[in-house]
């Protein structure tokens, strides 16, 4: 069992220092950190914390998923933004 950080991650570094197993690391890719969880080290915080710390602090819905690909913070669960408005969010994404 291990958690995974997917593309939605914005690289905010919040999870990295919280991991009791130091399983979270970042590689730099075109100036942006790309975070990943080492599946061999991740215990989902079992035995250390009641709840997986990376998912508890992560501000981005859908950025951390379990072994079945299910997001620990599903859409709407952190921002409270209603589903009906999600299309608008995608339209508003900043394309630099």
């Amino acid at each position: 069992m291990a958690l995974e950080i997917v593309n939605a991650c914005i690289g905010c570094h919040a999870c990295e220092p919280l991991c009791p197993n130091r399983a979270i690391t970042a590689v730099m890719k075109s100036g942006q950190p790309l975070f990943a969880i080492d599946a061999n080290k991740c215990t989902e915080c079992l035995g250390d914390h009641e709840l997986p710390q990376c998912a508890e602090i992560c501000p981005i819905e859908g950025a951390i998923v379990d072994e079945y690909g299910e997001p620990l913070n599903p859409p709407g669960s952190l921002t409270g933004i209603p589903f009906a408005l999600f299309e608008q969010i995608r339209e508003a994404e900043c394309h630099r």
Binding site: A14, I57, T79, G80, R96
Partner: peptide, 19 residues
Amino acid sequence: PACNIQCNYCNRKYDCSNE
């Protein structure tokens, strides 16, 4: 970069140079 709260006027995803 890290934050420990969420505010309803903030969106952590955005990073536009023109904003």
